[in-house]
Design a protein around this nucleic acid. Structure first.
Lengths: 122, 122
DNA sequence: GGTTAAGTTAACTAAATGGTTAACTGTCAT
DNA sequence: ATGACAGTTAACCATTTAGTTAACTTAACC
């Protein structure tokens, strides 16, 4: 029954995941990592910014749970964490569920007269 | 053949969509709208913040293409735009494609010796 | 032990975000 | 026409974000 706590934590992480993906540099890094693991400096190469900047992006991605960092000698190997992506997808999917039978559910969700688009329509 | 331009525009909108969903208030609004359309003030009710604050969140959601605003007398009806959500889902899905056959593709993507996690492993 | 390579941390800056209050624009009702 | 209702705009403020440069740690190399 740790579901409630778990849900709160997930909700918070979900925000971190979405914010992380809001940045083009980070999205690009995630795309790159979806092909396979890479080190920090390899990930940094394509970008016209300093290493500390990329390093911070990577730290943020890790904090969001989107990637995993593993020490490998003097370099760090970054790996994409499928779970985070799947969670984000699941949330988006949960928004889809409803509007598939929107025509039916609309009729049941008309508690608030202000929000009834059909009231003035028909 | 407007694909290239379209892709750039989509990439930009994708960032707006993900950033928008990074905020818990906005995520909550989107969740609510997935059940059915609602007016601005109805959407604002659950939140412990002023109307202008919610109004700005809604404007941002519209700018991101996540919702559509329709004037209805003196109120505005907000409707979720499926396309935006589907685009975001599609991007996440595109990250998944690769790691399903990661074991195979890894062997083919080992251009960079620094990034080869198996090199030191075996 | 000294140097180089990989990366992080610290201190700083400019711009964006998320909120506030106050004033404004329309629309509906009387 | 007046007034209340729905919502936006403007001006402001505190915090966060995304980047910089400079200094530091740690591991590899000779």
């Amino acid at each position: 029954m740790t579901t409630a706590t778990q849900t709160l934590k997930d909700e918070e992480e979900l925000g971190l995941v979405f914010s992380a993906l809001g940045n083009p540099t980070r999205r690009s890094i995630v795309s790159r990592l979806s092909v396979g693991p890479a080190t920090v400096s390899t990930l940094a190469k394509p970008f016209a910014m300093t290493l500390p900047a990329v390093s911070k992006h990577i730290a943020l991605l890790e904090h969001a749970g989107l990637i995993h960092l593993e020490k490998r000698g003097r370099s760090r190997l970054c790996t994409l964490r499928a779970e985070a992506i799947i969670e984000a997808e699941a949330w988006l999917e949960s928004c889809r569920v409803y509007w598939t039978d929107t025509l039916d559910s609309l009729a049941q969700h008309l508690e608030d007269p202000d929000d009834n688009p059909q009231e003035a329509g028909s």
